[in-house]
Amino acid sequence: MDSLRADSERYILIERVFYLYAPEGIGRSKLVDKMGKALPGVTMTARNLNTINKLVEMVGEG
């Protein structure tokens, strides 16, 4: 995966959750594109940090 990521991208896998920091956007990320094609049958979803913060606020944790 390191060979696919842009220099500005960072990622970590914690248990079954893959966290990706893609400052140029996930739509431009070669890593995201290749992962989606390489993992058939794996359910994926993406949320940006603003969405995560809003969800936390909505459930009263923020």
Rank of each mutant, 00 (worst) to 15 (best):
S8R: 08
R16T: 11
A6Y: 02
D2Q: 11
K54P: 06
R16Q: 02
Y11C: 05
P40N: 07
T45I: 08
K30M: 05
D2G: 08
D33C: 00
K30Q: 10
V42F: 04
K37M: 03
G25D: 09
I14T: 11
V32D: 03
G25T: 05
D33A: 08
V32Q: 01
G60I: 15
A38E: 04
E9N: 09
T43Y: 00
V17A: 06
D33N: 01
V56L: 13
T45N: 09
I14Q: 10
M35Q: 04
I14S: 07
E9M: 09
V56N: 01
L55R: 04
A22F: 04
R47T: 15
R16L: 03
D2K: 06
I14H: 01
L4Q: 08
P23S: 06
A6Q: 10
L39W: 11
V32C: 06
E61C: 10
G41N: 00
A46S: 15
S8N: 07
A46C: 14
L49C: 00
L20T: 08
G36I: 10
R28H: 05
R16V: 04
N53P: 00
E15V: 14
R47A: 15
R10P: 06
G41V: 03
L31N: 01
L49I: 03
A22P: 12
R47G: 15
A22Y: 02
R47E: 15
G25L: 07
I14Y: 05
G36D: 02
T51K: 14
V42C: 05
D33G: 02
T45W: 13
Y11L: 01
K37H: 03
E57C: 11
R28I: 00
N50M: 12
G27A: 12
K30A: 08
T51M: 14
V59S: 03
A22E: 13
T45Y: 14
